[in-house]
Structure formats: C-alpha cells, structure tokens
C-alpha cells in the first residue's frame, strides 16, 4: 500500500478531511435533563460505532459517537422530517451528548444555527450481524441506537441508574429497560436482562457500549454461552489519527483499531476492564480514571 497523501484536497481548495469544518446546528433535542441530541448540517458516510471529533473553537475538541446519519438511520431521518428541516448539505449527522465537564456543558448551551467544528468519521465500526442483541448503558446508547436502526432483526436493551437518565424511550417501543433503582423496567443490572434474552433464544451476536465494567460483564456472559460479541471502548483521545498514543489500551490503538473490538481482541487486551491512560499518559485504574 502506498501512502494516500491528500494533496488533491489542499490543491483544489476544499477542506482536507482531518481539519475540522464548521457546520450549522439544525436542531437540538432534549433527551433528558443531562443529555441533548444535536442534528448537524453535514453529509457523512458514517457507520455505527464510528465517532467524530467535535470542536468548540477557543475551548476544546472531544470525541463523540455518531448517533446516526440521515441516510442510514430512519430515526435520524424522522427527526429531520418532524422538524421540517432542509439541511444545505443534503444530509445530517446526529450526536447525543451528556453534560460531563467544561466542553460538553458548553456544547449543551448551543442553539440551532450556532456553528461547531466537526472532523471524521473515525474508527472501526461494529460489524453488521442480524439476529443480535444490543446492550447500551448511559451515553453508550448513541452508537447502539444507530446500530438498532440499521439491523432488521435485533433485540435492544438499555440500562441506566434511574428512569430520568434513560435515552430514546419514544424512539424504540420494543426496547427492554433496566434501572438500578427500579424506577422503570427491570430493577437491577442490564446484564440480567441479557442473560434472560439469551435463555429465550441464543443470538448470533451481542453488541455492547457503556461503562467498561458493564462491557466486561457482557464479555463474560457471552464467553460462557459461546456467543460472539463486540464492544466499543472509551479512552482519552487527542488526534483520532493513530499517532499521538493517548488512547492506547494494552497494545491496541483505540482511535483507529477500535473503538469497536471483538471478544477475542478484548480478551487479549491487557488493560481492558482494568487500566486507562490519563491526559498525562499515566496508567491508572479505571476507577481512578473516571473519578477525574
């Protein structure tokens, strides 16, 4: 393979793909008190599991999963039609964002017609296997919902701490729910719903995205039942291009070789379920990583 150096972009005056381009926010949908979905005026060939880098000029740039594209996701297309929106770029991308720190809080203040920077899509998507079960937790839901839009034969499970944290309830009537406090659906862990569903009928594939310990539990269940699985990892990201090394997990480069990995890869990954690198590239336990 010869390197693909994109001199063409630069010479023809178009924006090279790895420089953020400013795109208009078409619509903002409040999913729950902590989470909003943004419809962005940009046409993009993205697949479930891939992510974009979202730039707020002067502040920061952060990775966000693609919730869906107007081409591939009927749910996103429906959102466009409902709001009677006509994007200039003849396509739209949705991202679903939870307020966590300074950048996401600032992003959640944005209104329709505001501009934000986008580059991508990046990363390896989920494989597409019919007759599967997908398990989403928290802001792991967006890529899982995108996948649910594409597959015809699938079962969708969502777990959350409490009812008001749940996402996309009105978009998927057949979705099974669990909450830690029992405020909606099954009281307990979403992995318990997964075991139940596997007992009903063994699926051909299980997809997971959510807290890493949940994904580790899903991996163990799938191994027990000999079902292939794929999970999407979250690590601190800078370049998204596979050079800076911020996102490495074990000996894998999450931004380009992932974020989606299969059961075999996850089992071989020394740090999965255990360690992550901080912003300063110090290896810490997941608990320490998520406590800030």
């Amino acid at each position: 393979m010869k390197p693909e150096i994109e001199t063409e972009h630069a010479c023809k005056g178009t924006i090279p793909k790895n420089v953020p381009r400013m795109v208009r926010i078409l619509d903002v949908i409040e999913e729950n008190p902590f989470v909003k979905t943004f419809l962005l005026d940009i046409k993009m060939d993205a697949l479930p599991g891939q992510f974009v880098m979202v730039w707020l000029p002067g502040l920061d740039e952060k990775p966000m999963s693609v919730r869906g594209t107007s081409e591939a996701s009927p749910a996103v297309k429906a959102l466009l039609q409902k709001a009677k929106l006509k994007p200039n770029s003849e396509g739209a991308v949705a991202i679903t964002v939870e307020a966590r720190g300074p950048t996401t809080k600032e992003l959640l203040q944005k209104k329709p017609n505001d501009m934000i920077g986008i580059r991508g899509p990046y990363g390896k998507p989920y494989s597409i296997v019919e007759d599967s079960i997908m398990v989403g937790g928290g802001v792991g839901m967006p890529p899982v919902a995108f996948l649910a839009d594409i597959l015809k034969k699938r079962r969708l499970l969502q777990g959350a701490r409490t009812k008001e944290r749940l996402l996309f309830l009105d978009q998927y009537e057949d979705m099974r729910i669990s909450t830690d406090d029992g405020t909606l659906g099954h009281k307990g862990f979403v992995t318990e719903l997964l075991e139940e569903e596997i007992m009903k009928k063994k699926p051909k594939m299980v997809y997971a995205c959510g807290p890493e310990l949940m994904m580790l539990a899903v991996l163990r269940i799938c191994r027990k039942h000999r079902i292939p699985m794929e999970a999407s990892l979250e690590r601190y990201m800078r370049c998204g291009l596979g050079v800076c090394g911020s996102c490495v997990c074990g000996n894998r480069v999450v931004c380009v070789e992932g974020p989606v990995f299969n059961d075999k890869e996850l089992e071989e990954m020394a740090d999965f379920g255990k360690f992550a690198l901080t912003k300063s590239a110090r290896k810490v336990t997941l608990k320490e990583y998520y406590s800030g």
Binding site: I5, E6, T7, H9, A10, C11, P16, N18, V19, P20, M53, W55, L59, D60, E61, K62, R119, R238, C239, L241, V243, C244, S246, T278, K279, S280, A281, R282, K283
Partner: peptide, 26 residues
C-alpha cells in the same frame, strides 16, 4: 507530570501534520 495542551492538538492538513500536544508526561 504534565497534561499537555487542550484539543485540537493534532491535525492533518493535506501535506502533512501539525501537532501541539504540548509534551504530556506522567
């Protein structure tokens, strides 16, 4: 220990890259 600069700190612009990762180090 040093965290380096905020993002974006690496971009690829068609003829090469620009980075200002800012020497993060444990």
């Amino acid at each position: 220990e040093r965290e380096g600069h905020p993002n974006p700190n690496v971009i690829e612009f068609g003829f090469g890259m620009l980075n200002a990762v800012g020497l993060p180090t444990p």
